[in-house]
Design a protein around this nucleic acid. Sequence first.
DNA 1: TATTGTTATACTCTATAACTATA
DNA 2: TATAGTTATAGAGTATAACAATA
Lengths: 152, 152
Amino acid sequence: MQARPGDEAARDRMAREIGVAAEAVVLAWTRAAESAPATVSAPQLKALLAIDHHGPVNLVRLSDRLGALPSSTSRLCDRLEVNGLVTREAGATDRREVTITLTARGRAVLEQVRQARQAHFSRILAGMTPAERAELLAGLRRFAQLAPPPED
Amino acid sequence: MQARPGDEAARDRMAREIGVAAEAVVLAWTRAAESAPATVSAPQLKALLAIDHHGPVNLVRLSDRLGALPSSTSRLCDRLEVNGLVTREAGATDRREVTITLTARGRAVLEQVRQARQAHFSRILAGMTPAERAELLAGLRRFAQLAPPPED
DNA sequence: TATTGTTATACTCTATAACTATA
DNA sequence: TATAGTTATAGAGTATAACAATA
């Protein structure tokens, strides 16, 4: 890092343009989820994704991943549990802890959302050449490699 | 479109992987806005962006762009107006209509968010080569060209 | 009559603060 | 005493339904 002094300014300009251009991806990504047959709110879906990535978690760690407070996450888990998407079990070693786990139905909802997103994105990608699609995927994956995980 | 039959299946597979990989961009994009000095909620920020892209709008058109109902958007505009970010004026030709416009403060908030996003993205982009950054920007811009606008 | 926008009501989501139970 | 989780309360956000004003 910090090669020549002009590099940082050029990178900043690039960062601004990438931030602006990314809005379309953000809108398409969130909109696509709404077209899934499963009726799950955006915050609940975000929580399901976090649990899916992370595996069973306690409340504090899930809160960190969501960027929310434990009290908010507790209430969110109330609704997820009522909807049959997660289970809460008392921790084995530390009885204060709660282990939050996806149910089969929770995983099914995630799969429905991924399929809806696939269909939505595929329609957009129909206008691109295979080379352009590969370029986009490579760029997104490189970004994902470097982006800090949500708990930071 | 509809070149050879195998192309659509290959595109679908690509669409799924792009959808999965895009999550990191979505998280970084939304998280970056939270680090801005301006304290504006995500729904309010989304509305400011929509008005900025579109220019002065009436309530129904803004609702369409947000994917919300007019009643919800009316309440959202109540809060935006209280915060001094937008103004509501009676329409000139049709007196039923309301023209919603960004204030100088609303535009300043958007600029603060864009700067916060630029700083956040620049840190991530520091790990990429200039060629990789250019590839990502090109892919995002191509996607933005093809993605349907939010009112659809 | 149709359209624009609002208000009434209820639910989800979130933060702040106070609380319980366990370590 | 510190930590994990919950509950109490209040405000933001949104949908459904009913309403007012204008076309």
